[in-house]
Design a protein around this nucleic acid. Structure first.
Lengths: 362, 362
DNA sequence: CTGTTAGCGCGTTCAC
DNA sequence: GTGAACGCGCTAACAG
C-alpha cells in the first residue's frame, strides 16, 4: 500500500511539505494563489491521496464511526444501519461495522477494536441482555465503554443503557418507548377482541423483549384482561416458527377443527415482526389461517415485510431515524441553537398500526 | 481520544517500548517469560489499547476491508454484507462500509476514501452501469481502482468487472452466472406454460439487469418462444410496483375480467425478487390474483421474502457465500495447497426454484 | 534477548 | 506568507 506522499508532492511543486499540507487541507493560513495552484496540480498529477492514518495520528481523531449490530442481514439492523450511514455521511465520516450476534463478550471486543482505531464515536444498536450468565461480560463491556468515554469517545446506545454503565460524559441513549407502545398495542387489540392473548417473547433477560412483554401485559391489565401466557423462544424467525408450531397444535386440539366460530380464537403477540412472520408461517404450514383461526401482531413494522398478506398488525418504529438520531447524538452539536444540553436524550415515537392480521372475521 | 500509550506501559514496566511492543503483539522474538508478564500486567493495569492508526502507519497496512454497496437496507446487499463480515472476521480485519446508491461517481469517492484509509482490500457489490451518462464517472472509477491496485491494494467485484478496468494484479471478479440462470429459469417456465411472457427489467445499462434480461430471452428462444416484451423501470420495489400497475391494467383490459380461462394469462419475470414483490403488490391492489390471473417469478431468492404467499418462484443465489468468496479472494492465500493461481476467479452457482407463484392453475 | 535508533506520513508550533 | 523543526504512537532495523 505504498502511495505518493505529501512530501513527494511538495518536492514536485518546489515547496515545503508544510505549505503543501496547508493548501491540500483546509488550514488557517491561506498560501499564495499562485503557489496553491502549483501544489494542487502536482498533487493530482501524482494522484496524491492523503494518508488518513497519518492524519489521524497527527490530529488524534480518525473520522470513523463504529456501529455495532447483532446481524447486519436482519432487516431491523439493516434499517438502522442505513440511518447511521446517512448521518455519518453528513458528518463526513465513515462507518466501521461490527456484528456480534448480541453476545456482550463480542460487543466488548468490538468496542475495544473501535477504541484501538480511535473511532470518534460508537453506536450500539441491538438489545442488551441482563441474564446472569452475561453478567461478567456486561460488566467488562460497561468498563470498556466507560474508559472509551473517558478518553473522549462518544457513545450512543439504542433502546437501553448498557447494563451497569455509569452515566459518563458523552454517553447517550436513544430511548425507544417499547413498553408504552406495546401497552398501546394491547389496548387497541383488546378493544376489538374478547378472546385470549398469547405472547411469543424472546429469551428472558433480553431487555427489548422484556419491555415489550411487560408493556403488553400492562395494556391488557388496563383493559381489564387477564395476563397473557408467555412463550419464550429465540428472538428471530426460527424462534417464531417454533412457537408457532406449538400454538398451532394447541389451537387444533382446543378448537376441534378450524372455522368453528364457537371456539375462541387466539390473539398472538410476537415481540418483533420477524418472529411474527415465523409464527405465521408455522400456522399456515399446519393448515391454519390468519385471521380466521388466529390473529397475530408483531412489532417494528419492517419495511420489507409490509407486502406480506395478510398484512401484519404491528407497531411502526422509525428505524432509520433511530440510527440517524443515535449517530447525530454522538456528533458535533447540531445547528439548532436551541437547548442543546449534552445530556439530552433524543426520543423517538412509534405508532400502533392495525392491519388485516388482527381483523375480526365476520 | 487520548489513551495510554505503549511508551507509558513500557515505562511502568521498566522496559523499552520495543520490548513492550514485542510482548503485546506477536513478534518474531519472544521476550523473557518474566519480563513478559510484567509488561502484560502493566498494560492492563493501564487499560492499554494499541493505537491501530499508529500500527498501520508503521506497518503500512490497516487491517481494514472496504465494502461498497448501493444500499445496506436492501436485503440483497445486507445478505452479501453478512458474508463479507464473516470472512473479514476470519481474517481478523474490520469492515468499513460505504453506500453509494449505485452511482459510479460516489463509488469512485468511496474507493478514494478507502485508499486514504489504506484499506487492505475493497469489495464492490452491486451492479455496475454502462450508460453513456455514467461513462466519465466509470472511467474515473476504473482509474482510481487501478491506482489502488498498483499500490498493492486488492479488489474484488461481485458480478461484473468494473467497466473499463484493466485487469490489474490483485483485481478479482466473483462471477455470478446471471445470464445462464435466467436462461434456465426461462426454460423451466416455458416448459410448463404456453402463454405470453413479459419482463420487468431495471434501467437499461444496469449490467446485472441486462444480463438477466438477455439470458431470459435466450432461454425463451431455445424453447421456441417469441421474445418477451420488456418493461423498464427502477431496480427496486417501487419500480416493480409501477410496472405491476401497468401490467394489471393490461391484463384487466385484455382478459375482460379475471378468471377467464380462455384469456391467456401473463407470465411475468421481474429481474429481482424485490421488484417481483412490488409487482405482486400492485397486481393484488388491482384485484388480480397470483397465480390465477398471472404468474410471476423473481431472482435472488431473498431470505426475508421466502415466507411470502404465494411463494415466489425465483433463482436461488448464495448471497452470503458470494460476499464471503469475494472477501476471501482479496485475503491472503487460502490454506488449500491446491492450484491457487492469483488470477483465479471464484465462481458461484445458483439454482432455479419454482414455487407456487408460477404454478399452473387447474 | 534487550535497548537504541530511525523512520511511517502528516499537522503544527515556531522562527524567518 | 513560507520553511524548519518536532511529535503523534508504533514497528523494524540495527547494536549491545
Amino acid at each position: 500500500m505504498a502511495a505518493s506522499t505529501l512530501t513527494e508532492v511538495a518536492r514536485l511543486a518546489g515547496v515545503s511539505p508544510a505549505t503543501a499540507s496547508r493548501v491540500l487541507n483546509g488550514s488557517a493560513r491561506k498560501p499564495g494563489k499562485d503557489i496553491a495552484d502549483r501544489v494542487r496540480q502536482a498533487a493530482d498529477s501524482l494522484g496524491y491521496i492523503p494518508n488518513a492514518q497519518a492524519q489521524g495520528l497527527a490530529k488524534s481523531s480518525s473520522g470513523l464511526i463504529g456501529l455495532i449490530v447483532h446481524d447486519i442481514a436482519d432487516p431491523y439492523f439493516a434499517a438502522i444501519a442505513r440511518g447511521v450511514q446517512a448521518a455519518a455521511r453528513e458528518q463526513r465520516k465513515m462507518v466501521l461495522l461490527a456484528t456480534t450476534g448480541g453476545a456482550p463478550g463480542e460487543e466488548r471486543e468490538a468496542v475495544a477494536a473501535f477504541a484501538a482505531r480511535r473511532a470518534d464515536s460508537i453506536v450500539i444498536a441491538g438489545s442488551r441482555s441482563c441474564r446472569t450468565e452475561d453478567q461478567d461480560d456486561n460488566a467488562e463491556l460497561a468498563a470498556e465503554l466507560d474508559r472509551y468515554c473517558r478518553n473522549g469517545g462518544r457513545v450512543a446506545v439504542v433502546g437501553h443503557p448498557v447494563v451497569g454503565a455509569t452515566a459518563a460524559e458523552g454517553y447517550h441513549v436513544v430511548a425507544v418507548p417499547n413498553q408504552e407502545l406495546a401497552g398501546a398495542l394491547a389496548g387497541e387489540l383488546a378493544a376489538g377482541w374478547d378472546g385470549d392473548f398469547v405472547i411469543i417473547g424472546g429469551p428472558e433477560g433480553l431487555l427489548t423483549s422484556d419491555d415489550r412483554v411487560r408493556g403488553f401485559q400492562e395494556g391488557l391489565a388496563r383493559a381489564g384482561r387477564a395476563p397473557a401466557e408467555i412463550l419464550r423462544t429465540a428472538f428471530n424467525r426460527a424462534g417464531g416458527y417454533e412457537a408457532g408450531l406449538t400454538l398451532a397444535a394447541r389451537i387444533k386440539a382446543g378448537g376441534k377443527g378450524t372455522g368453528d366460530a364457537a371456539a375462541p380464537r387466539l390473539c398472538i403477540f410476537a415481540v418483533n415482526d420477524v418472529m411474527a412472520i415465523g409464527a405465521s408461517a408455522a400456522l399456515r404450514a399446519e393448515g391454519l389461517r390468519i385471521p380466521r383461526d388466529a390473529t397475530i401482531a408483531g412489532f417494528d413494522d419492517i419495511e420489507t415485510l409490509r407486502d406480506f398478506r395478510p398484512a401484519l398488525s404491528t407497531v411502526r418504529l422509525p428505524l432509520e431515524e433511530i440510527g440517524r438520531l443515535a449517530t447525530q447524538a454522538t456528533g458535533p452539536a447540531t445547528g439548532s441553537s436551541d437547548a442543546d444540553a449534552d445530556g439530552e436524550q433524543p426520543t423517538v415515537s412509534g405508532e400502533v398500526t392495525l392491519r388485516r392480521s388482527t381483523e375480526a372475521v365476520a
